[in-house]
């Protein structure tokens, strides 16, 4: 289980996260939507302390960390209970696809190299990237790099995978293959929190959609409810805006 309690993050005195409280059950798929600059990415980055929150508490599995007195060891434990997928993939440029996936198992979990590579091969198979095992990131397309990025997160066998706009940096032609892989993980009930602008994905895959604005959770609920009968004016305004930007046949699917 993941629990975030009264999480606060300020940049130059501005509260980017203004007391976020959120509980996520094991196997739950959460999609976070909202206008740009409302703290969605900051929320994810505070959950694993890539950004140090200014207040509140984060719990992932059996690790519970108070932001105001988080020790280095606690932060490390928290990060080892979670995995992160970055918007710009952030693959290790000096490692092959296989090594990118195996790296954490070797360095963090202390697995022997052969065992880690064996597991990495299994993951490559699952993400359909077996032929690219020995390719370096520079030789891969954006979509392929992001699939490896997801594979790296899968290898950690973390309680939760945090996805920070995983398709936003991709050329349109690569978006589907990444979303398909994420759907596959959702079917396997991998707990995930996804920040995305892909409304169709949110509708199809999420158990719960969270709408954030101004550093707060404005509204949340199952996609069927949130997309068809939003309660808050701000949610309605946001959805009207983004759904008008997508082709009508998609919007009609509400």
């Amino acid at each position: 289980m993941i629990a975030v309690r009264k999480l606060v993050k300020k940049f130059d005195g501005n509260a980017v996260l203004d007391g976020i409280t959120l509980e996520v059950e094991q196997g739950e798929i959460i999609v976070v939507i909202g206008p740009s600059g409302t703290g969605k990415s900051t929320l994810l980055r505070c959950i694993n302390f890539l950004e140090q929150p200014d207040g509140g508490e984060v719990q992932i599995g059996d690790v519970r960390v108070d932001a105001t007195r988080a020790s280095r060891a606690e932060i490390l434990a928290l990060r080892r209970n979670s995995a992160f997928v970055f918007q710009n993939y952030a693959l290790f440029a000096n490692k092959t696809a296989l090594e990118n996936i195996a790296e954490g198992l070797i360095v963090v979990n202390g697995w022997p190299k052969a065992k880690a590579h064996q597991r990495a091969r299994e993951i490559l198979e699952r993400i359909g990237m077996s032929e690219k095992a020995d390719a370096y990131p520079a030789a891969l397309s954006g979509g392929q790099q992001q699939r490896i990025g997801i594979g790296r997160a899968m290898a950690a066998q973390a309680e939760v995978i945090l996805f920070d706009e995983p398709t936003s940096a991709l050329d349109p032609e690569w978006v589907d293959e990444v979303l398909e892989l994420m759907k596959q993980l959702a079917v396997e009930r991998q707990t995930m929190i996804v920040v995305t602008h892909e409304m169709q994905f949110a509708r199809d895959v999420a158990d719960r959609v969270i709408f954030m604005e101004g550093g707060r959770i404005v509204e949340q609920g199952p996609p069927s409810q949130l997309f068809s009968a939003p309660k808050d004016d701000r949610t309605r305004a946001f959805l009207r805006k983004v759904l008008n930007e997508v082709p009508p046949q998609c919007a009609a699917g509400i």
Binding site: N48, L50, A83, F84, F86, N88, A90, L91, F92, V108
Partner: peptide
């Protein structure tokens, strides 16, 4: 971002 990726997997 590679530094962040390494931190995110617990290095």
């Amino acid at each position: 971002s590679q530094t962040e990726a390494a931190l995110s997997i617990g290095m």
